[in-house]
Amino acid sequence: QVALSRTQVCGILREELFQGDAFHQSDTHIFIIMGASGDLAKKKIYPTIWWLFRDGLLPENTFIVGYARSRLTVADIRKQSEPFFKATPEEKLKLEDFFARNSYVAGQYDDAASYQRLNSHMNALHLGSQANRLFYLALPPTVYEAVTKNIHESCMSQIGWNRIIVEKPFGRDLQSSDRLSNHISSLFREDQIYRIDHYLGKEMVQNLMVLRFANRIFGPIWNRDNIACVILTFKEPFGTEGRGGYFDEFGIIRDVMQNHLLQMLCLVAMEKPASTNSDDVRDEKVKVLKCISEVQANNVVLGQYVGNPDGEGEATKGYLDDPTVPRGSTTATFAAVVLYVENERWDGVPFILRCGKALNERKAEVRLQFHDVAGDIFHQQCKRNELVIRVQPNEAVYTKMMTKKPGMFFNPEESELDLTYGNRYKNVKLPDAYERLILDVFCGSQMHFVRSDELREAWRIFTPLLHQIELEKPKPIPYIYGSRGPTEADELMKRVGFQYEGTYKWVNPHKL
Score class of each variant (00 low, 15 high):
Leu262Gln: 03
Leu262Lys: 01
Leu262Val: 11
Gln263Leu: 08
Gln263Val: 03
Met264Glu: 04
Leu267Asp: 12
Val268Ala: 03
Val268Ser: 03
Ala269Asp: 01
Met270Lys: 00
Glu271Pro: 01
Ala274Asn: 12
Ser275His: 03
Val281Gln: 06
Arg282Tyr: 01
Val286Asp: 04
Val288Glu: 00
Val288Ile: 12
Leu289Met: 03
Lys290Gln: 12
Gln296Ser: 04
Ala297Val: 15
Asn299Pro: 08
Val300Leu: 09
Leu302Met: 11
Tyr305Phe: 12
Gly307Tyr: 03
Gly307Arg: 04
Asn308Ser: 10
Asn308Ala: 13
Pro309Tyr: 15
Pro309Gln: 07
Pro309His: 04
Asp310Lys: 12
Gly311Met: 08
Glu314Lys: 09
Ala315Pro: 10
Ala315Ile: 06
Gly318Ile: 01
Tyr319Val: 01
Leu320Phe: 07
Thr324Ser: 15
Ser329His: 01
Ala332Phe: 01
Phe334Asn: 00
Ala335Lys: 01
Val338Glu: 10
Tyr340Met: 09
Tyr340His: 06
Asp347Ser: 15
Gly348Glu: 02
Gly348Val: 01
Phe351Tyr: 03
Cys355Met: 04
Arg362Phe: 11
Lys363Trp: 05
Val366Gln: 02
Leu368Ser: 00
Leu368Thr: 02
Gln369Pro: 00
His371Arg: 11
His371Gly: 09
Asp372Tyr: 03
Val373Ser: 15
Ala374Asp: 12
Gly375Cys: 11
Asp376Val: 06
Ile377Ser: 03
Ile377Cys: 08
Phe378Thr: 03
Asn385Leu: 05
Glu386Gln: 08
Leu387Gly: 00
Leu387Ile: 07
Ile389His: 03
Arg390Glu: 14
Arg390Gln: 13
Val391Gly: 15
Val391Lys: 13
Pro393Thr: 04
Tyr398Gln: 14
Thr399Ala: 12
Lys400Phe: 10
Thr403Asn: 11
Pro406Gln: 15
Gly407Thr: 12
Gly407Cys: 14
Phe409Asp: 12
Phe409Tyr: 13
Phe410Tyr: 08
Phe410Arg: 08
Pro412Leu: 14
Glu414Thr: 14
Ser415Pro: 05
Ser415Ala: 06
Glu416Ile: 15
Glu416Ser: 08
Leu417Glu: 07
Asp418Tyr: 11
Asp418Ser: 03
Tyr421Met: 15
Tyr421Asp: 15
Gly422Gln: 05
Arg424Pro: 15
Asn427Arg: 15
Asn427Ser: 15
Asn427Leu: 11
Lys429Gln: 12
Lys429Asn: 13
Leu430Asn: 15
Pro431Leu: 14
Pro431Gln: 08
Tyr434Cys: 12
Arg436Ala: 15
Arg436Trp: 11
Leu437Cys: 15
Leu437Phe: 10
Ile438Trp: 04
Asp440Met: 05
Val441His: 00
Phe442Ala: 07
Phe442Val: 15
Met447Val: 04
Met447Phe: 08
Val450Gly: 08
Arg451Val: 01
Ser452Phe: 08
Glu454Arg: 08
Glu454Met: 10
Glu454Gln: 14
Arg456Pro: 06
Glu457Ile: 02
Ala458Gln: 15
Thr463Cys: 09
Thr463Val: 06
Thr463Pro: 01
Pro464Val: 06
His467Leu: 10
Leu471His: 10
Lys473Val: 06
Tyr479Thr: 02
Ile480Val: 10
Ile480Ala: 12
Tyr481Val: 10
Tyr481Thr: 09
Ser483Val: 04
Ser483Phe: 03
Ser483Glu: 09
Arg484Gly: 11
Pro486Gly: 01
Glu488Tyr: 06
Glu488His: 06
Ala489Val: 14
Arg495Phe: 07
Phe498His: 15
Phe498Asp: 15
Tyr500Lys: 13
Tyr500Cys: 14
Tyr504Leu: 15
Tyr504Lys: 13
Trp506Pro: 15
Trp506Leu: 12
Val507Thr: 11
Val507Ile: 07
Pro509Glu: 15
Pro509Ser: 10
